[in-house]
């Protein structure tokens, strides 16, 4: 069992050498080539997938930033518009108040002026009446009776005024 057979050793060497040559050329070379190509492809695909994922993440981030910016801008515009509206409203109300006040003052002035003019006119007319009344009285001054009668009449009229 343990005796060495040189012939068998030689057959082993020859067979092995032939096997290495044949397999090396027709089996290992294409097999390893295929393997390497596939591994390369898988590695590439993984790398590309990773890159695509990063790109997608970056784009999502960018979109989110843009959306945030737009929302902030909108909010700002609304606030600005509201503030401006408030201001315009305030202005209009103030101006309306102002003009109402002015109109009232003008009306008051007008009234005062009209009143002054009326009083002035009345005074003139009263004076004319008094003068003409005095003239009439002077024209008719003849008898004391009549005078007395006039004075009484005037006296009677006084408390009534």
């Amino acid at each position: 069992m343990l005796d060495i057979n040189p012939g068998l050793i030689i057959w082993t060497l020859v067979t092995f050498a032939l096997l290495v040559l044949v397999l090396g050329r027709f089996a290992w070379k294409p097999l390893l080539q295929t393997l390497q190509t596939r591994e390369q492809e898988i590695a590439d695909a993984l790398r590309k997938a990773e890159e695509a994922k990063k790109d997608a993440e970056r784009m999502i981030q960018e979109n989110k930033a843009t959306m945030d910016k737009a929302a902030a801008e909108t909010a700002r515009l609304i606030a600005e518009g509201r503030a401006m509206a408030e201001q315009v409203k305030g202005d209009i109300v103030a101006r309306a108040n102002e003009s109402a006040r002015k109109m009232l003052e003008q009306a008051k002035d007008e009234i005062a002026r009209e009143k002054d003019a009326a009083v002035q006119q009345l005074r003139g007319e009263v004076a004319d009446l008094a003068v003409s009344a005095a003239e009439k009285i002077l024209d008719e001054t003849l008898d004391g009776a009549r005078q007395k009668k006039l004075i009484d009449k005037a006296l009677q009229q006084l408390p009534k005024n």
């Binding site: 060495i4 040189p6 068998l8 050793i9 030689i10 082993t12 060497l13 092995f16």
Partner: peptide
């Protein structure tokens, strides 16, 4: 067979 394994060992 020890001759075969010997051949492999020689290689």
């Amino acid at each position: 067979n020890i001759s075969v394994t010997a051949g492999l060992a020689v290689i």
